[in-house]
Amino acid sequence: MSVLEYLMVLVKTLIYPGVIFVIILSLIYEWVDRKVYARMQNRIGPFYVGPSGFLQPFADFLKLLSKEDIVPPHVDYHVFTLSPIITLYLVLLAMFLIPTGAWNEPYAILAFEGDYILALALTTFITIFSFFAGWSSVNRFGVIGAMRALYQMISYEISMFLCAAAVALDTRTLCLSRMAEVQASGLWYILLHPLGFVVFILSMQAELDKVPFDTPEAKTEIVGGWLTEISGKKLAFFRLASDIKLFFCASLATTLYLAGPWGPLGPNILWFLAKVTFVIILVTTLRAAFARFRIDQVLAVFWKYAIPLSLVQVLIALFIPH
C-alpha cells in the first residue's frame, strides 16, 4: 500500500465516513428528532442556537462537557467512570459496520463475512454497559433502572435478532454490506418482509429506550433510571452515545430492509441519509403516539406478540426463499 492509500484509510476511519462524520450527523439527527417531536406536539422545539435551533445538540454537548465531574462516594469507581467511554467506543465501532455509500463504495469501512453477528453483539454490549453504569452507581433508582434495562433486553433482543436472522436467511449472507447489495438488484426487504420490518422497528424502539418502552429511564417513576447519578462529562458521553445509537439502529434498519445506500440514481450517500431520516422520523412518530408501558407489560408485549411474529417471519424466510 502506498502512503496515499494509508492516508485514505485514515481519512475514512477518522473523518468521512468515520468518527467525526458520525458524531456530527448523530447530533444533527438528535435535532431532527427533537424538532419533529416538538412540531408534532404543536411546539417550536429547539430555537435559539443556530438557525432554527440547529446547533442546540452541539451546545448541550459542550455545556455538559464543561460541567464539574462528580463521582459520588461508594460507587464502583472504575466501572462507573469507564462505562460511558466504553459505550461511546462500542457505538462508534458499530457504525463502522454500516455501509453508508460514502466515496461511492458499496462496502462499509469494516466489512467481512459475519460482521452482521458483530453488529448485533455490539447492541447487546451497549445495553450491558448501561446496566453497569446504573448498577455501579449504588443508587436505589439507578439499580432499579439497571435491572429494568436487563429485563427489557432479554425480551426485545430476541425478536430483533430473529427478524434480522430472517433477512440473513433470505439473502444467504452474513455481511451487512452484501445484504444491502442483494436488495439493490431486487425488491427491498421492507416489501418482502413487512412483518419483520414492523417487529424490528418495535424492538428498535425498546433498544433505544424510547416511549413506549423507555422503562429503564422513566423519569416520572424512577427519576432518571440508570442515568440518575450520571452527570457532567459522563452524561455528555452517554447522551452522545445514545444519539449515535439512534443513528446506528436507524441505519441498521435501513441496511436490512431499505437496501442501505442503494437507490435508482444520484449519489449513494444521499440515498442512505434520506432513508435513515425516514426511519428516525418513524421512531419519533411512535415515540409521540404512545404512553409508557410498565416493565411487566413490556415483557408481555415482546414475549406474547413480537417474538412469535418474528418466528413466523423466520419460517416464511425458510420455506419461501426469494
Binding site: V36, A38, R39, M40, Q41, N42, R43, T285, A288
Partner: peptide
C-alpha cells in the same frame, strides 16, 4: 387518531 393529529400538526404553525 393521535397519529393523524400528529401528522397534521407537522404542517401547522406551532402554538408557542
Amino acid at each position: 387518531s393521535v397519529i393523524k393529529e400528529l401528522l397534521k400538526n407537522l404542517f401547522t404553525k406551532p402554538i408557542t
